[in-house]
Simulated scan of single mutants.
Amino acid sequence: MLLPASVRFSKPKIQPKRFKSGKNTLPDNVFQERFSSQIRLPHIGLSGQEKLFQAKILVVGAGTLGCACLPWLVASGIGEIRLVDPDRIEPDNLARQVLYTEAELGQNKALSAKTTLQRQNPHLNLIAETQYATRESAQNWIKKADLVLDCADNVATSFLLDDLCRSAGKIFVSASAERFGGYVGAFNGNAPAYRNIFPALNEGTDCATSGILGAAGGVIGALQAQITISLILGLDPSPLGKLFVWKGDEWRMETIIFYDAPIKKTENYPVISLKEITANDLLIDLRPKNSWPKINNALRELPKNLSPEQQDHRRIIFLCETGALATKEALEHQERGYRNLALCALNLEENL
């Protein structure tokens, strides 16, 4: 028995493949055309591009580093980016933070960056967070991310994110830029933590006080983006456990490999907020006298008669503006035998 012609000669309907990342869906032809230059790379291919589209990353900071890093991450096809920055755009940002123009002055950085980046790639899920990165909020964001980028260029934020990433088993890509250069490194995972390499930093090492050439921030931010993409793809050799230092005034790049560096096991001093301080704590205010805001019950220095043996389990908290001076003091006191130490940085306090 012959089948009707309509049945015999009809072609089976083939559903074109659609690439999904969260709520986002891209038809195969759009996906392959948009990312064709990357797909052609033998180390990436179609499967690697799918990895990028499935990836979820957290970026803390939309300043100099964030503005340099984010466009490349968005263009690469990463499926979800959560961007955190509570600051507003100011005139002196425009010389180095290239996502913003005079028309956006006064606007929140995370929201403004989202608008610009969403136009660049409307197919990704871009989430803007305008609140501060506290222990509670950052812990929640990190749980939802595959990888965390530190673009805040602030020591207290770096320590906080590093601690949380290490606890969550997430890789931490941290960068810093000032003057004519900077560095970027990949920490945690199977490599040492950020704190193991940078136990303390000097007060004032940031672009706000030292100055920065905008292009230098661009170099570091672009390198941070490439390291992130490489880690998502699992490329070999891996940048994990390496620190890349760009010395733009000398025109050279140095690579420091710390993957197998011997780590001195010491008790970490966590970054805490003012609301976590209790009546039993000893709070040492390291800021100049008469600094605002005034912190009640804060001491100017540790009592001279309080030896490590007499600490009696009381927590000692060092407070400063950025966290840099506090980390230095905590490290010095730790080496003298004090334990149960903590840091508090006022520039992370949302309600001051």
Rank of each mutant, 00 (worst) to 15 (best):
I232R: 06
L233S: 07
L233I: 06
G234M: 03
G234F: 10
G234A: 06
S238Q: 06
L240S: 09
L240I: 05
G241P: 09
L243S: 08
F244W: 15
V245D: 02
W246H: 14
W246Y: 15
W246T: 01
W246A: 11
G248T: 08
G248C: 01
D249H: 13
D249K: 07
D249F: 08
W251T: 12
R252V: 00
M253W: 11
M253C: 12
T255D: 00
T255V: 13
I256K: 07
I256L: 14
I256M: 11
I257W: 00
I257A: 12
F258V: 03
F258L: 02
F258D: 02
D260L: 04
D260K: 14
D260P: 01
A261S: 10
P262S: 11
I263H: 08
I263S: 07
I263T: 14
I263Q: 12
I263D: 05
K264D: 11
K264C: 09
K264T: 13
K265Q: 14
K265M: 08
K265G: 02
T266Q: 13
T266Y: 10
E267Y: 04
E267I: 09
E267H: 09
E267R: 13
E267T: 15
N268W: 04
N268Y: 09
P270E: 03
V271L: 14
V271M: 11
I272D: 04
I272L: 14
L274D: 03
L274A: 13
L274T: 13
K275T: 13
K275G: 02
K275N: 12
E276V: 01
I277H: 07
I277R: 03
I277Q: 08
T278P: 01
T278V: 09
T278K: 15
A279F: 03
A279P: 00
N280G: 05
D281V: 02
D281C: 07
L282S: 05
L282Y: 09
L283E: 00
I284F: 04
I284P: 01
L286D: 10
L286W: 07
R287T: 08
P288Y: 02
P288C: 09
P288R: 04
K289W: 01
K289D: 11
N290E: 10
N290Q: 12
W292Y: 13
W292D: 08
K294L: 12
K294N: 02
I295D: 07
I295P: 03
N296M: 02
N297V: 01
N297L: 10
A298Y: 08
A298S: 15
L299V: 06
E301Q: 15
L302G: 04
L302W: 02
L302I: 12
P303Q: 04
K304L: 11
K304M: 07
L306S: 01
S307C: 01
P308M: 05
P308A: 06
P308Q: 05
E309A: 15
E309G: 01
E309N: 13
E309H: 08
Q311H: 04
Q311F: 07
R314H: 14
R314P: 02
R314E: 13
R315G: 05
R315Q: 15
R315M: 09
I316K: 06
I316N: 06
I316W: 03
I317H: 09
F318H: 08
L319K: 06
L319C: 14
L319N: 00
C320N: 03
E321P: 00
G323H: 00
A324S: 14
A324I: 06
A324Y: 10
T327L: 08
K328Y: 12
A330Y: 04
A330H: 01
H333D: 01
